[in-house]
Amino acid sequence: MRSELLRFEDWTSPVPAVEREVVSRLVEGEDEQPPVLFVPGPGHGAWAFAERWLGHTAKRGFPAHSLTPRDGGDLRAHVHDVVQVAAALPRQAVLVGHGTGALVVAYALGRYPARAAVLVSPVLEPRPALGAALRANPFGTLPALFGGAQRLNRKQLFSPGLPAEEADAYLAKIHPRPPRAWTARGDAPRPVGNPPALVVGSPDDRVVPRTSLDRAAARYGGAPLLFPGMAHDLMLDAGWAEPIDAILDWLAKELAGPR
């Protein structure tokens, strides 16, 4: 993995400024834990974490924030926004990315010295994810092969345990976006400061194959933490509390250890 604190294009073609949507849940009283910045993938906004995980994280003592991806932004712009928001927080932040948001976090780690990082259902490899999507939802995926927007369905994002009315309400909030804007060129950079990293997912995910989870975890020196029976959107699915509690337990253990 390579490192890139500064890039030539940052000077020659700076990312345009935008008004960023950040949703926060703060800790009551004095907070002693680092803030956690949640990064959703395309189509999802800060709302996807605000539904469950933000409040739960704050109750566990971690100030929680989520950043909505900018409209029409490419991977570089989203990485820029994550770095800027994280740098503006009062303490060194933990970065948590979901889906393609995990790819954004992987790149942001090359520019921001995160306290720790968590990649949830990470889409780091577009081809395996596209193949899985074609098998699970061919009609919703075919437009993406020609530069159109990919439409994920209920079975891809949620397990049968989530009531249909809840799943449909979440699906109505998801805005499909063309995948080309989020395409990476080459491997993600080497993380600055070598922060601890955790990969979380489900072996039953119909978006991210199990082999991709294994490779992502191996890239960061570990094994994936798996939650069988859940689907891609762990933060919204039935049983949502189990993965976030496991993430926060892991984080508390890492913070208690030597640096």
Score class of each variant (00 low, 15 high):
Val96Pro: 03
Ala172Gly: 08
Ala136Lys: 13
Pro138Phe: 13
Leu54Ser: 06
Tyr170Met: 06
Ala136Cys: 15
Pro113Met: 04
Ala169Pro: 10
Ala136Gly: 10
Gly73Leu: 03
Gln92Asp: 03
Ala87Gln: 05
Gly45His: 05
Pro163Phe: 09
Ala164Ile: 14
Leu134Phe: 15
Leu103Val: 00
Leu171Trp: 06
Ala48Glu: 03
Leu171Met: 12
Gly101His: 04
Pro143Phe: 12
Leu152Tyr: 13
Pro138Ala: 12
Glu51Ala: 11
Ala93Gln: 00
Ser66Trp: 07
Pro122Cys: 08
Trp47Lys: 03
Pro69Thr: 08
Ala172Cys: 11
Leu134Lys: 14
Leu145Met: 12
Gly55Tyr: 06
Ile174Cys: 03
Asp71Ala: 03
Gly55Cys: 00
Glu166Arg: 15
Arg135Thr: 08
Arg115Glu: 13
Arg91Ala: 14
Arg52Ala: 06
Gly148Phe: 14
Tyr107Gln: 07
Arg151Pro: 01
Gly148Thr: 00
Ala48Lys: 00
Lys155Ser: 09
Gly97Ser: 07
Val79Lys: 01
Ala77Leu: 07
Asn153Met: 05
Pro128Gln: 14
Pro90Asp: 15
Leu75Pro: 01
Leu134Cys: 14
Glu165Pro: 00
Leu152Gln: 14
Ala93Tyr: 05
Gly110Pro: 03
Leu109Val: 12
Gly148Tyr: 11
Ala167Asn: 02
Val104Thr: 12
His56Ser: 09
Val94Leu: 10
Val104Arg: 07
Ala106Tyr: 14
Ala167Arg: 06
Phe49Asn: 02
Leu89Glu: 05
Val96Trp: 04
Gly72Trp: 01
Asn153Cys: 08
Pro90Cys: 13
Arg135Gln: 10
Ala93Lys: 04
Val96Asn: 11
Trp47Gln: 06
Arg111Phe: 04
Thr68Ile: 03
Arg52Gln: 09
Ala164Trp: 13
Gly140Phe: 07
Ala169Thr: 09
Gly131Pro: 03
Pro69Ala: 01
Val105Tyr: 13
Leu124Asp: 08
Gly73Tyr: 03
Gly140Thr: 02
Pro138Leu: 10
Gly140Cys: 00
Val120His: 00
Arg151Ser: 14
Leu119Ala: 08
Pro90Asn: 10
Ser66Val: 05
Leu145Arg: 02
Phe146Pro: 09
Val123Glu: 01
Val94Asn: 11
Gln156His: 05
Leu89Ile: 09
Leu67Pro: 00
Arg154Ile: 09
Glu125Arg: 15
Leu119Gln: 12
Asp81Met: 08
His80Arg: 10
Arg70His: 02
Pro122Lys: 07
Leu134Arg: 12
Ala117Trp: 04
Gly72Phe: 12
Lys155Met: 03
